[in-house]
Amino acid sequence: MSSKIPYVNILQSAICIPAAEEIPIALDIKILPDKNIPPEAFFGVWLLDISGSMAGDRLDNAKESLIEQVKILPENTIFNLITFESEIHEILTNVKITNSSRSDIIKRIDKIQDRGTTSLFEALEKGVGLIREYVRNGGNLSVKKIILISDGDPTDVQVKSGDESDPNYQKYFQLAKEALEYKSSIDTVGALGEHNVYLMYEIAKQSAGKYIFAENEDELKTKMIIATEQTAKIAFSQPTMQLTGILGKIDLEDAAQYKPTVIRMPFNKVNDQLANATFRSFEAGDTYQILVKGKLYLDKSKINMEVPNKILGLEIDFGKPEMKIQQDITIKFSTDPSKFKLNQDINKKYANVFSQAEEIADCTIRGDAQATQRIQGDETKKIG
């Protein structure tokens, strides 16, 4: 984790406007983490599908990838490997990566064989349970990651592909939200085009993780390795943003990252004057840009005309007491139309980004993994 506060620049859509009780506002936040940080140890849980559909090259490449990942994991990383088919199997739990332990881990991976169906829910439940236990026992590694690899639909808690209203989806998403509560994200790797795209994408999104699509066996191997390399280079693990209404109520409507890739972010309304959002983890050297959109409901009696008014308090917490950025968002209210000023570029950008986000949502429901990756950008290549 970086000890240096990143560069942060915040632009806003409304700069000088007429006074009103309801004001739309959009913020464009740019964050540049330090690029000069070495790979760091993390707490990792790998959930590997070994059901019958993974037989052959898929499983062979996944195993080869796991072995390569073990070779490059930073010392003191805590390694957990759970395989799942009709049952789940705790292959390794809470093993610290050292020069001597790597060879033992590799031998255990070599012995993995395919079998059975796909108990994905039970595996995810186990993975989140390991994170919960680690946090409650005082684990000191800041970065905590679950990596879920699967090529099929779950057969334990079944869901209907193409029907996002199926209530069983919420059982999976609740686990994703619990992981987020423990400052852990879930990266999902959809192997080939046969996985449940909506399920895997939403698990990642709702935990502020990454959805990664592997089109073939070679990509499965390569992208798993890259995802682990990216995790080891996290500069800030799931920073949070808090918005506080100063002159009235706030309604945060949407938040999305659009660089290096496009994805909506979890956010919630705490009360009428407080809302927050969770960012994706920031990796060293990448450029991150986030759009936040909402409405302000102001008490006009508190507005001072022709001077800047503090309307919002913004705080970004990068995970340490000394790693917070606080900034007031101000707007000038005027009766003179010649002074009115809006940043139309932000509004245009918002329309484009959220149009892409809606298109991604449609693609995931249809089960179109290729289109999802094309629009959002490849998480392992960072194509924005």
Rank of each mutant, 00 (worst) to 15 (best):
I263M: 14
D218W: 02
I234T: 13
K205Q: 15
K223L: 06
L274I: 11
A214S: 14
Q273L: 05
T261S: 14
V262I: 15
L247H: 02
G209S: 10
L243K: 03
G245R: 07
T222W: 07
G245Q: 08
L274K: 11
Q273N: 15
L243N: 03
A275L: 09
E219I: 01
A256K: 03
E253I: 06
Y211W: 10
Y258L: 07
E219F: 10
M241A: 12
Q257A: 02
I246L: 14
K249G: 02
N271S: 15
G209T: 03
Y211D: 09
G209I: 04
Q230R: 15
M200H: 06
Q206A: 01
S207Y: 09
G209W: 06
A208P: 11
A256P: 03
K205H: 09
N271T: 08
E217M: 08
M200V: 06
L243E: 02
I263Y: 09
E229T: 00
P266G: 06
T228V: 12
D218F: 08
Y198R: 01
S207F: 09
K205L: 13
Y258W: 10
E253T: 04
A275M: 09
Y201K: 11
I246W: 01
D272W: 02
D272C: 00
A255Y: 07
D254E: 13
A255L: 13
I226W: 05
I203V: 12
F236M: 11
Q238Y: 00
